[in-house]
Amino acid sequence: MAATTITIHNTGNPSSNAAGERSWLTNPSNDRQASFHIVVDSKEAVECIPLDENAWHAGDGSGAKSGNRTSIGIEICESGDYAKTLDNAAELVASMLKARGWGVDRLRRHFDWSGKICPRLMYDSGKWTGWTAFKNMVDYKLKTGGKTVKKDDKVEVLVNGKKVADGVLDDGVTYTPVRAVAEALGASVMYDAGTKTVSIVAKK
């Protein structure tokens, strides 16, 4: 496989770790035709299949342009310290993008290939706020050479005295999810993926 994208998944198993997910692939009782390239938890990332071989993770068949034939599948575990797991996954993905000269536009959800609600913990009732936050985290690490955000770099974002999100302070500028702030102010937020435009509409 000559990959052109990286696809992100959640394992759908709240009690497994990376080693357990890897073991499941070769468990004699596992009769599913499904697989993935890398699985990440709060402690490690395990490569299960060479990145130049196909894995059956996208759910969209075997066409030449399918996710199964063109994309590296990364499973994010749901157990343990999920925030740390996400940070590990973002660091891994950022390093993979950098090595290939790619940007976050090369990232895909399982959902993008087959409509399955996955990565499910990023779904947020169809708003996909977790997905946007993950891409922003990857983009931040990509632009800062994979630097992990220091505790002192994190700031609380308050709207009318109520915490709505965590932000990151970078060179005097605070970065935070625009949706969290806008919706806390009673506005609606729409994102156009085609034009990469965020529209904020205040309620009258």
Rank of each mutant, 00 (worst) to 15 (best):
D112R: 04
S114Y: 04
A180T: 05
F111A: 07
N136L: 01
N160P: 04
V159N: 04
V178C: 02
K151R: 15
K162P: 08
F111T: 10
G167H: 01
K162M: 08
T144A: 06
Y175Q: 12
G145V: 02
N136M: 08
S114A: 12
R109G: 09
W102Y: 10
A187R: 04
K163G: 04
W131H: 05
T132F: 10
G103Y: 07
R106D: 06
I117M: 08
R106W: 04
T132A: 11
T148I: 07
W102T: 09
T174E: 10
D153F: 00
G115Y: 03
A133Y: 03
W113F: 14
V155M: 09
K150G: 15
L107G: 07
F111R: 15
G145K: 10
V138M: 05
L107F: 02
K116P: 06
D166N: 15
G126K: 11
A184D: 08
V149I: 14
R179H: 03
P177Q: 05
L185V: 00
D139M: 02
D112A: 04
A165F: 00
W113E: 12
D105Q: 14
L185F: 03
L158Q: 12
F111V: 00
I117D: 15
K135A: 04
V138H: 09
D170G: 00
G186W: 05
G126D: 09
G146C: 06
V181C: 00
V173T: 15
V155L: 08
R179V: 01
F134N: 07
K116G: 10
A133Q: 14
D152A: 15
V173L: 10
R106C: 03
G172Y: 09
T144K: 03
L169D: 13
W113S: 12
K116W: 07
T132I: 00
K162G: 04
L169H: 03
G103Q: 14
G172Q: 14
V104H: 06
P177E: 09
G146W: 05
Y123F: 10
E183P: 10
K147R: 15
K163D: 06
L142R: 09
Y140H: 14
R120I: 04
T174R: 05
R108S: 11
V104Q: 07
D139H: 08
G186A: 00
V149C: 06
K150N: 15
Y175I: 01
